[in-house]
């Protein structure tokens, strides 16, 4: 909640300073894609796997189990079948590759159903309350990534 307020404050401030340049209103952090990966942390900080698990499970945030099965989370009900199971995913992918897939999977898989969790622009008819906002903050992406990186074979 705190981070969202700070982000909103930032947006409002940017709006005052550069009213015409709507590109600067973006709620997403900048990043560089190379070798189908985002190699650097979005925040420059390491992720917190403990918080990442919370964000991963939160139905208003990552809601990752809506689409993915994770065997180690079998105490949680209703794992979806839309995406691949995530067990052992950290043994199959490098950290930067997974970061890219959380940030915006469509960069490498154009037709995927998977939402971009850190993208605020180029979207069609976004509901007002989500407009200009990313599903997850940059640090939440890093936290979820840290948690996913614990899913080794």
């Amino acid at each position: 909640m705190n981070t969202r307020r700070i982000a909103l404050g930032g947006i409002a401030l940017a709006g005052l300073v550069a009213f015409a340049a709507s590109a600067t209103l973006s709620g997403a952090a900048e990043y560089k894609v190379e070798d189908e990966a985002i190699k650097a942390s979005l925040t420059g900080k390491a992720g917190d796997a403990g918080n990442g698990k919370k964000v991963f499970l939160n139905r208003k945030k990552g809601n990752c189990l809506a689409c993915h099965v994770v065997a180690s989370l079998k105490d949680q009900p209703f794992h979806g079948q839309v995406g691949p199971p995530l067990d052992g995913t950290a043994s199959r992918w490098k950290e930067g590759e997974l970061r890219l897939r959380i940030v915006n999977s469509k960069i490498v898989n154009k037709d995927t159903i998977m939402p971009a969790f850190h993208r605020a622009e180029g979207l069609h008819r976004v509901l007002k309350k989500f407009k200009g906002k990313t599903v997850l903050s940059a640090q939440e992406v890093e936290d979820v990534l840290a948690y996913v990186m614990t899913m080794k074979e």
Partner: peptide, 19 residues
């Protein structure tokens, strides 16, 4: 929408799958 999905992503590509 923010989740960036078309009707077809659920009802063509994933019909029959649990969400």
């Amino acid at each position: 929408g923010q989740l960036d999905m078309a009707c077809k992503h659920c009802h063509v590509d994933n019909a029959g799958n649990m969400i």
